[in-house]
Design a protein around this nucleic acid. Sequence first.
DNA 1: AAGTGGTCTAGACCACTTA
DNA 2: AAGTGGTCTAGACCACTTG
Lengths: 250, 250
Amino acid sequence: MSESPVSNEPPIYRRIADGLRAAILSGELRDGDRLPGENALMAEYGIARATARQALSVLINEGLAVPKRGSGVYVRRFKPIRRHGSRRLARDQWGRGQAIWDSDTRGRPYTVDGLRVAREPAPDDVAAILAASEIWVRRRRYSVDERPVQLATSYFPADLVEGTPITLPDTGPGGVYARLGDLGQAPAHFTEEVQARMPQPEEVTALELPAGTPVVVVRRTAYTAGGTAVEVNIMTLDAASYVLQYDFDA
Amino acid sequence: MSESPVSNEPPIYRRIADGLRAAILSGELRDGDRLPGENALMAEYGIARATARQALSVLINEGLAVPKRGSGVYVRRFKPIRRHGSRRLARDQWGRGQAIWDSDTRGRPYTVDGLRVAREPAPDDVAAILAASEIWVRRRRYSVDERPVQLATSYFPADLVEGTPITLPDTGPGGVYARLGDLGQAPAHFTEEVQARMPQPEEVTALELPAGTPVVVVRRTAYTAGGTAVEVNIMTLDAASYVLQYDFDA
DNA sequence: AAGTGGTCTAGACCACTTA
DNA sequence: AAGTGGTCTAGACCACTTG
């Protein structure tokens, strides 16, 4: 028994979703608050279970709510990390043996796990940029506040870094950029390309992403003063955890 | 009759979605190709309509497929615009009477519509940055290849721009930045803050976004050489239509 | 006219969380 | 034990697109 099937109104599930969204955006429902569940919506609106689920799925796919099995659907919490694009890579950061990351989290503890270093054949696009068919790859995952927030994969020309600490798990003080400096190939110029899209399943798993969360993909290329590309770093960020900041002059 | 309810395998709808995704990512199914429809999946896997829909909805919400009413579900097409963050705002661009946008589309035709200019009370966050309670607001929508790709809202301190062409629909050669220059308030430094999230319904409508498409929100603040904020510009981009590029030195 | 996706009902069983 | 969300079936009517 659908209410008034001829009318021009949006479907029931959408009207319900609109109401809940308004409550969230207005602050009537706050971070972490529990939304009316499937049973509550069925009773309140006299609809079938599937329709109630559909209404909730709208909010979940918009990233406004998070379902918790056996518990309920809750208003989502946010607290992004500010990531400085230009400032963070200033030479004095890594030139003094500081990890780049330190300038982002402002004291919040972070962890790195899943570090894997390997020599591999280069993917086509990376091979073209680095002008190398064989590369060393460094993969790892970053977490803040116990939650994974970023996957990163760095590529280096094998000929350049072979035998250096860049091929080891521990690259030493200042990290890979300091080591490139040791080789006389210090990065002087960076390009970052930023895209956003919905994640693939492996990314959902690795970053523990709830539905409705995009990822931001940052592809950074590091060039020496001579214009040679010495690193490509592809970072996949939980979009809900980040604000990217770039500063530049006219 | 669910197949083998005890097994540790993913649910049917997810296995079907995984298969279709693999076909898309491998290139077996190409841009614009038609996916097997609900009826085809029901027959092939012996499942109910709702389950087939659920499988397709996974791909749609991932942004990999687009449903077309009465026709089918199709592999999505992409062709992003490259937007240069640093270079595009170099003084010689607007200093010579060129619109900023010209440096992005490289000859692809673009259009602006929905331009509205108004004097309003400032939203709290903007008021704080511009140090002004009253502001002039310029809103407009940009399209490329007949498709809307960006919404933009610019805020200016009312005291500063009152009586200038910035309060008119046509701001003249070089646009608002040239006019700020006329006032002796030329922008010298910019900050862009980049975030990505799922769109709200009004944004879905205004940008004609298919499901599974995030938006990228860029908030740019323009500062004079003296450090005064003279413009806040909030841009909402169709994430599938853009690659943002930033260049900077170590 | 036939096929497609969009919405909805009325059930069912399951795994999980909370009390 | 009760309640919750997760998955699934088997129907139905609709609006829309295509041949």
